[in-house]
Amino acid sequence: MSKPLIYKGRASISNAAGRFEKQSRAAEDDGWGSLDAELPPLATEVIIDSSKSVLTYNDSPDIPFDRSINPYRGCEHACIYCFARPTHAYLGYSAGLDFESKILVKPDAARLLREELAKRNYRCAPLALGTNTDPYQPLERQQRIMRQILEVLIESRHPVSIVTKSALVERDIDILTEMAGQGLASVYLSITTLDRTLARTLEPRAAAPQRRLEAVARLREAGIPVGVMMAPLIPVLTDYELEAIVSAAHKAGARSVQYILLRLPLETADLFAEWLQQNYPLKAEHVMNRVRDSRGGKAYDAAFHQRQTGSGSYADLLAQRFRLITRKLDLAGSLPALRSDLFLPPNLGGQMSFDFFD
């Protein structure tokens, strides 16, 4: 068995080659105990993404939006359960440590979005951000790509919904408040656990749970429709917190709470199982058995309408508990619908200045 690759601030403990690669590498001890040496810090590598378009469309029947933007590919938050990890294989990278440390950025995202919104055949509908990787991950502090995208959206009066684990969303409260006043913006904060110790290993570079709840409160105070997404709800590790998380979200001012049961597609299943054995060895088998109980005996079932909440008696019990607590607290299943009738195609001949937002 190979030695775990344990880096501070990283969740993965391996970096296996992507599933499309023809070659793989394995570290071997040279007889001098080289594998026992302490690993140096793993720095984040920023790579420019030269994509020619920025909008991604989908026709999935169980997803409430048909278009999205991902300003970043890969995510420094390093959440071990992230269902987006396998997408890094398409880039020739590993779904493990590469996903957390080799981040592709789209510096031209705002310009590309402006051009696509200006097309004569474009039809406006709510745009989703944060559906794959987090648009407010740590690199956004320097890159400010998300801020630039919001500037294009407010200029064109285009509706947007955001999901994030980062309190950095507060930076853009000025733009989001104005958009929300026109029915054009809503935000979900993703909260997986209230246990700080668990969160530190599970999602090491995301904001602390309490800090996310504070962001919920500040967005609510600013008049922005805000909810909490329990994503994911993890069998055995966090499922007992369901009622506590919903109650904390309600207390912070969330108008809606939703949940997604743990999803482990492709490489994510092995990465999560490795993490369990390293951090919670006594619970590992129990967790994976519960996962399979809710996924038809497999680590993952991608069937529409089941992939979000699972199936079987365990999944049904979670759904019943969720219905009871949200009904008790009078929480909505979703935030108010966003408006699409105010859309104005951007003017490519000139661009408004948004310096007054800074």
Score class of each variant (00 low, 15 high):
Ser60Tyr: 03
Ala11Tyr: 12
Leu176Tyr: 05
Leu198Ser: 10
Ala26Leu: 12
Leu194Met: 13
Leu329Pro: 04
Asp36Asn: 07
Pro346Glu: 04
Asp62Cys: 14
Glu151Lys: 09
Glu140Trp: 01
Val54Gly: 03
Thr238Gly: 04
Arg67Ile: 11
Val236Met: 01
Ile103Lys: 02
Ile175Pro: 13
Arg25Ser: 14
Met352Asn: 15
Gln142Asn: 12
Gly31Met: 05
Gly33Cys: 00
Glu178Asn: 03
Gly333Val: 01
Pro71Tyr: 07
Leu112Gly: 05
Met146Asp: 04
Ile6Trp: 04
Met1Arg: 09
Ser34Pro: 00
Tyr280Asn: 06
Arg200Pro: 05
Phe343Pro: 06
Ser101Phe: 12
Trp275Tyr: 03
Ile175Lys: 03
Asn289Leu: 12
Lys119Ala: 07
Phe65Val: 07
Asp108Pro: 01
Gln210Asp: 13
Ala109Trp: 06
Gly349Leu: 11
Ala17Asp: 14
Leu324Gly: 02
Arg263Ser: 11
Ala84Gln: 04
Leu318Ala: 08
Glu115Phe: 09
Arg19Thr: 08
Val54Pro: 06
Leu5Cys: 06
Asp239Phe: 00
Val228Gly: 00
Leu104Tyr: 15
Ile191Leu: 15
Ile234Lys: 04
Arg147Ile: 00
Met352Tyr: 02
Gly227Asn: 10
Ala37His: 10
Phe357Asp: 05
Gly223His: 01
Arg19Ile: 10
Tyr259Phe: 15
Asn289Tyr: 02
Glu21Pro: 00
Ile6Thr: 09
Leu184Met: 06
Arg144Asn: 09
Tyr90Lys: 14
Ala337Pro: 02
Glu140Pro: 02
Gly349His: 05
Phe343Glu: 15
Arg200His: 02
Ala319Met: 11
Thr56Leu: 13
Lys283Met: 11
His305Phe: 15
Lys328Arg: 15
Gln277Ser: 10
Leu5Phe: 06
Val46Phe: 04
Pro40Ser: 11
Gly18Met: 04
Tyr93Met: 06
Ala17Gly: 10
Ile80Lys: 08
Pro345Trp: 11
Arg73Ile: 11
Ala118Phe: 06
Asp62Met: 07
